[in-house]
């Protein structure tokens, strides 16, 4: 079976590398695709801009989304995903440093699947990533592709 990809939306390259390192440690083989801002994330998902050649129906199996992003912030990206016919059922997990109540509330208002805080401790971070990937990519049953 083809492995579902992970879309990581994160502008802090140090965090990106740490996340990839964490993924590698989990032993998951799913390809990880990184975009660094909200606009690129949308372009990727909806096959516009530089991604116009991408197959529209090829959606990632999981989207990891930071809230603070250049150009288009994480919440807006989430809203757009939920409004899109093809993308709306892709699991989105917010991965943020913030535990501000209003951020969490807003994310759930936009029907986020899960909200996780990036811990400072990398071991804990790696654990988080591992559990996350394990749950969403192995245990969770994805919604069938829209026809």
């Amino acid at each position: 079976m083809e492995l579902k990809s992970i879309l990581l939306v994160e502008d802090n390259l140090s965090d990106v590398d740490l996340a990839i390192r964490a993924f590698e440690k989990t032993g998951l083989l799913n390809p990880v695709f990184v975009v660094e801002d909200g606009k690129e994330a949308l372009d990727y998902l909806f096959c516009t801009g530089q991604y116009f050649k991408r197959d529209q129906l090829d959606m990632p199996g999981l989207i990891l989304l930071d809230l603070k992003l250049p150009f288009v912030d994480g919440l807006s990206v989430l809203k757009q995903i939920r409004l899109n016919r093809i993308a709306k059922n892709v699991p989105v997990v917010i991965l943020s440093s913030s535990i501000e109540e209003k951020d969490i509330m807003a994310a759930y208002e936009c029907n986020v699947n899960s909200y996780l805080r990036k811990p400072v401790d990398f071991t804990a971070f790696a654990n988080t990533i591992q559990q996350l990937a394990n749950y969403w990519l192995k245990l969770n049953i994805l919604s069938p592709k829209p026809r």
Binding site: N12, S14, D15, L18, R21, K68, S96, S97, S98, I99, E100, K118, P119, V120, D121, F122, T123, F125
Partner: peptide, 16 residues
């Protein structure tokens, strides 16, 4: 909460 924590994560992560 956002910006001060991010570098800490890097320091910890890369030390590890």
């Amino acid at each position: 909460s956002h910006d001060l924590r991010a570098p800490l994560r890097g320091i910890d992560g890369w030390s590890l």
